[in-house]
Amino acid sequence: MSRYTKITAGVLALAITAGTLHAQSSANQTVTYEVQTINQIAVTGSPSLTITTATAGSQPTEVTATGSYAITVNDTARKITIGLNSDMPTDVTLTATLAAPTGATSAGALTLSSTAQDAVTGITCVIGSALNIAYALDATVEAGVVASANKTVTLTIVAGP
């Protein structure tokens, strides 16, 4: 190979290399994101409670039914309160016991009224499903006969220990 040919080949190689020096290219893009507070609760089931009998000499026999609830909370220090849309008739008592999700504490059996009460406390960053709600209906003889009626039980996630 002549000296001229060698030089030309070398320059040609340089020319090709210059065209491929940008073999790596980058793009930089900003991504913005956020995770907001999430408190979701849902109930399932349509419990029905009917007092129909008693043991002679005793108050009418209590009846029970169950429902369930599911919960998703990504915040800290939450609780579930429970209340009725209106009070029960005199001498008729409806109680509810909510099972607690992992890490939380159930208040046990609560006599329900139109005033919201803490049913589960200490809820932090948890999901739970098919959590049991145990209902019980009691009536004394003084309540008399109570016609069929509906009550709305409301579970609410609120801030609190």
Binding site: Y33, E34, V35, Q36, I38, Q40, I41, A42, Y69, A70, I71, T72, N74, I127, G128, S129, A130
Partner: peptide, 8 residues
């Protein structure tokens, strides 16, 4: 933005 969930 993650902002909601289905309960459970």
């Amino acid at each position: 933005t993650v902002s909601t969930a289905f309960a459970g």
